[in-house]
Every structure is written in C-alpha cells, then in structure tokens.
Amino acid sequence: MRLLIRHDRAIRAWLRASLPSMNDVDEVMQEVSVVAWRKFDQLDDPENFQRWVSVIARYEILMYRRKKARDRFVLGKEVEQLIAEEGQEELKLREQQLGALEHCVQKLPESKRELVMEVYSSGQPMHEVAKQLGKSDAALYKSISRVRQSLLECVKRSLAEGAAS
C-alpha cells in the first residue's frame, strides 16, 4: 500500500493522458490498485514497483478502452498506444512536474489561484462553473487557459533550474 501511495500520482498523471476524464482515471486506478494488491506477491523487487505497476496499468487501460470503444472521444488504438508507451518511460518526469506544480500554484496571484481552484474542485463541466461564476463560457475558457500557460511556464522553469543546480 505504501509503495502504491508513493507512486500513485505519477501513475494517475500518466493514465490521465490516455483517458478522457478524471472519473475514468479514478475508475482505472481503482482496478490497478485491486490487481496490484492481489498480485503483490508476484513482485520480485520493490525497486521495480513502478515498472511493475505500470504494466498492470497498461493492461487496465486496454480493458477500459475496449469497454468504452463505442463512446465518442475515445482515442484510436494506435494513438492511445503511442501516448501510453511514451508516457510509461516518463513517470519520473511526471513526479517532478507534479512537485513543481505545487510551488507554482502557490506563486499564482490570489485571484487566479482562487479561480483555478474553483474550476478544479467543482467536479462540474466548465460551462456549469461559468454559469455559477456569472461568466461566459468563452471568457472562462480563456482565463483558465492563460492560468495553465503560466503554470506550464513556471513548471518548465522550475525543472530547468532544478536540473542546472
């Protein structure tokens, strides 16, 4: 369980790129946790845990994809494979990006931080949040997109500074 908690966020970030929504990520991660728990005695070396659990996750993505294949907005098999395979090699980078993101969120001006927290904590579609905030859909998308851009820049900068020091 401790190993799973330690690597949970990097794996979920990797899953997120392959799955259409956070709910899908939670659903697949739940399967991954149960399978990892059940097959834990097959893990030969705890050092290999991330690699081992990512193989389980790859399989669970495939199963999930099969289940949802008829839905709209499910990426084609070839595209999904490319995203997942490339991402499997970047779990360390995911951890670093998530770590940097926490600091970057703290650096945001208060109004922007509140806006982004409002959108991400609501669990509702953006257009619903826009309605609640009394903004137009387009205005909210634009604001959130700008905040993301500044967070992206900040994360990139933090990792580059970390690598240089």
Binding site: G76, E90, V105, L151
Partner: peptide
C-alpha cells in the same frame, strides 16, 4: 486531434504534460 496526436510526437508530449497539470490541479483543489 487524433491526426495531430498520431503524427506529432511534440503534441503527444504536450498532452502528457497538460494531463499532468490537470491531474495535479484536481488533487490540489480536492
């Protein structure tokens, strides 16, 4: 979108980074 992701490795890398951002922000907000 599918065409872009199929043909452009940079776009796929950006999608993974944006997905990380999305997940991280969800977790922080929660």
């Amino acid at each position: 979108l599918e065409k872009l992701l199929l043909e452009d490795g940079e776009a796929r890398a950006m999608l993974r980074t944006l997905a990380t951002l999305d997940l991280g922000l969800h977790d922080i907000a929660l």
